[in-house]
Design a protein around this nucleic acid. Structure first.
Length: 756
DNA sequence: TCCCTCCTTGTTTTT
DNA sequence: CAAGGAGGGA
């Protein structure tokens, strides 16, 4: 449908949802028809444009809600889009096609599953299931899984899927190249196994969609007609499969609007194809390109530093970000002695800012790799600053949650072999490898599911009486739970499953420090069930949508990787570990080419542009790498910062030398502005003077906490969330010296432990 | 079946 | 160095 005058007349330019857009944003909202690429620099109101555009399309009657497909990458982004569109239009977005690529792919595929050899109730496997399945196939082929681990095959297969390649479309030459010519046959077998157990992995949700569109043009046409408008967020992160999927849907009307920023493409290692955004104008002839360049987030110094840095990249479309914000602080570049010093300095700055009234939740420490958070955590615990780590094990990836869900899966779908395997001997039921092997053998030979094979074996006398009894009881339980599910509320049944299977009891009997938390998680899982209509509905949600959305409301310092920080913003950002080998990462350096290095630089750009008011970069003189001290070089990215927008500082002993190394020829000029800070090296000099914070003005010491609510005494047994159980060795005010059973001895603020 | 020891391997991570 | 996996021994 083309822009009809009647349609556009119904939306006056003063429509409330258009209020406050700047000129280019408004242009991006109004350019409804034909292909449009919105190049949205960091902090330029990208989400705003997307949501307003969607609202505009609906409000002007160009399409009905179910005729617009809006896709993003993450659940977080999808949720934000749904919330904002809902708020803008004042209605529910229930049932609309606004969500992640994978959720849309799954929804579409459920309607046509038979066409690709699946049943509509197919299971969506996660990483863990995939790896276990692959491992079985690898071992069945007699491949040494130690030399060639499942992960390796998994990543090769995933990359093929990212490129939209089904096994028959991988060229023989490429197949021969991949893992000794083993990956391609394994890929074929893997796909066959997935179909046999009526399952999909994440890549399949799109890949099967492509097959569907290719083999059944009438289905493709149906969706081309249905989706009059397509909106895509984070286009720089799409892979080839997603590009092909979008292109198939946009066929005909070409009402495709992609929003993205080539400078923030940081996911090539998982198949994202930056070429998609660079090639957009060629892929979609007649495309309009709209650049959003007015940044509403960062101060000019931060913006200048980020822009100057990213200008060192070759392969980019190029934009000129500008801001109307007044000048603020320059970007701090700070040399430190080592990782411990770095954590200490960062925490001092955090305390200083807090003393000046800045909320902790507005301060983020953004690291290149997860392991870097450890030293910060330890320091934050020591000084008693509350913090939150984003990332790490997600809720549904935890062992106990996966086990519980496996029970639910088998109950709902008896043929779910991977789930059956997971629970058949969890908790331990005394089933040995021999018993399980005969189940597997029969299943394979008869071409039936593990559960069906088990049932058959129980009827025979092949099994030892004990195993037979155990399996018979398990199958009886499963059947009973299944019956109950149709009669009783599913949260109640879930609770019964966990109780009657002995799963809850297993953790109650467990004396390890994590057991209590696991039981808590199980309770949380059952509580979460109440929000869903049915058990199958819940399972779909779990596999596609469930993430650990921690309460962001608490006032805590935020620790996370640069990748996890994309799309977020903070008043203050700390960027530690800017050293060659850490950032840029060693692997990027090993590759030798520019592609990997440019991606690291984009990551640096993402990091800097997260900051609204303050950004601090750190680099150490030496660091412990794999257990040994190593002298490290400042990151080349430091040298690429504009001297005018940066303030440097270093402890006295490091001052001249390090700065010259970091800043190259411009160091002397820059040094005239720098603030020398006296601090002895913590490890090599015995004296230790407290150091003033880098931020101007002295740190106001935060008031000492009130007297401990629980008086702790030496010898007392205590429990800590992270370190587990331990005993108090000494008490010093609000600080406790604790010997932990697992984690060794640490100094901990009393409020972080409880009496055990 | 469980525990201990030896060995390997150390980015980023969403769905 | 430290964590996690595999394999062997009790």
């Amino acid at each position: 449908m083309r822009d009809s005058p009647a349609a556009s007349d119904t939306a006056p330019p003063s429509a409330p949802y258009l209020a406050g857009l700047n000129e280019t944003q408004a242009a991006a909202v109004h350019a409804t028809d034909g292909p449009v690429l919105v190049l949205a620099g960091a902090g330029t109101g990208k989400t705003r444009v997307l949501t307003c555009r969607l609202a505009h399309i609906l409000a002007t009657g160009r399409a009905r809600p179910w005729q617009v497909l809006a896709v993003t990458f993450t659940n977080k982004a999808a949720r934000e889009m749904r919330d904002r569109v809902g708020a803008l239009l004042g209605c529910s977005v229930e049932g609309w096609w606004v969500g992640t690529f994978h959720a849309a792919g799954a929804r579409l595929l459920r309607s046509h599953a038979e066409r690709v050899g699946l049943k509509p109730a197919f299971t969506i496997l996660d990483m863990d299931d995939q790896l276990r399945l692959l491992k079985q196939l690898i071992e069945a082929r007699g491949i040494d899984a130690k030399r060639l681990p499942p992960r390796l095959f998994s990543s090769v297969i995933q990359r093929w899927k990212d490129r939209g390649l089904t096994p028959d479309r991988v060229t023989a030459a490429e197949g021969a190249d991949a893992v000794d010519n083993l990956a391609l046959p394994l890929y074929e077998e893997y796909q066959a196994r997935l179909r046999a157990v009526n399952a999909c992995d994440f890549g399949d949700l799109l890949l099967h969609g492509l097959t569907l569109f290719r083999e059944y043009p009438e289905i493709a046409e149906k969706y081309q007609r249905q989706f009059r408008y397509l909106l895509v967020d984070e286009y720089q992160d799409t892979n080839v499969a997603q590009y092909l999927w979008l292109r198939a849907l946009a066929q005909g009307h070409h009402n495709l609007c992609c929003v993205g920023d080539d400078d923030q493409s940081i996911y090539s290692w998982r198949g994202a194809e930056i070429g998609n955004i660079l090639r957009f104008e060629r892929d979609f002839p007649g495309a309009q390109v709209i650049r959003l360049e007015c940044n509403y987030r960062s101060t000019p110094h931060i913006l200048a530093a980020a822009s100057h840095l990213i200008a060192h990249n070759q392969g980019r479309l190029g934009k000129t970000l500008w801001t109307t914000r007044g000048s603020g602080e320059k970007v701090g570049v700070r040399a430190v002695w080592d990782g411990e010093d770095e954590a200490r300095v960062v925490c001092e700055q955090i305390e200083a800012l807090r003393g000046r009234g800045h909320p902790l939740r507005e301060m983020a420490v953004l690291v290149r790799a997860g392991f870097q958070t450890r030293e910060f955590e330890e320091r934050l615990i020591t000084v008693g600053l509350p913090y939150r780590i984003i990332g790490g094990a997600r809720f549904y990836e935890r062992q106990e949650i996966r086990d519980a869900i496996a029970y639910f899966r088998v109950v709902v779908q008896p043929d779910d072999d991977l789930a059956f395997e997971r629970i058949v001997n969890t908790p331990k039921r005394g089933l040995g490898p021999a018993t399980l092997r005969s189940v597997h053998t029969l299943a394979r030979d008869a071409g039936i599911s593990l559960l069906a094979a088990t049932a058959r074996l129980i009827g025979s006398d092949e099994l030892k009486p004990q195993a037979r009894g155990t399996l018979s009881r398990l199958l009886g339980d499963l059947a009973r739970w299944r019956d109950r599910l149709s009669a009783a509320p599913h949260p109640d049944v879930a609770m019964q499953i966990l109780e009657e299977s002995g799963y809850t009891a297993m953790w109650q009997a467990d004396r390890s420090p994590e057991a209590a938390g696991r039981l808590e998680n199980l309770k949380e899982l059952v509580a979460a069930l109440t929000e869903f209509e049915s058990m199958p509905g819940f399972l779909e949600h779990v596999s596609l949508v469930m993430d650990n959305d921690e309460a962001a409301g608490d006032d805590k310092v935020v620790l996370m990787t640069l990748h996890a920080a994309k799309g977020l913003e903070f008043d203050t950002v700390f960027l530690p570990g800017w050293e060659e080998g850490i950032f840029p990462n060693q692997r990027a350096l090993n590759e030798g080419g520019t592609a990997a290095l440019e991606e690291e630089r984009r990551l640096a750009y993402v990091g800097l542009t997260r900051a609204r008011a303050r950004a601090f970069i750190f680099f150490a003189d030496r660091r412990v790498v794999y257990g040994t001290w190593q002298q490290v070089m400042p990151s080349r990215f430091i040298r690429e910062l504009p001297a005018d927008d940066v303030v440097q500082s270093a402890p006295a002993g490091l001052f001249g030398f390090e700065m010259r190394r970091a800043m190259g020829a411009r160091a002397d000029e820059a040094l005239s502005e720098a603030i020398p800070i006296a601090a002895p090296p913590p490890r090599f000099a015995p004296r230790h003077r407290p150091e003033p914070p880098l931020i101007e003005g002295r740190a106001e010491r935060v008031a000492v906490r009130p007297a401990p609510a629980h008086p702790f005494a030496p010898g007392q047994r205590v429990f800590h969330q992270k370190f587990g159980y331990g005993s108090v060795r000494a008490v010093d005010g609000d600080r406790l010296d604790i010997d932990f059973e697992k984690a060794g001895s640490k100094t901990i603020i009393h409020s972080f432990v409880e009496a055990a």
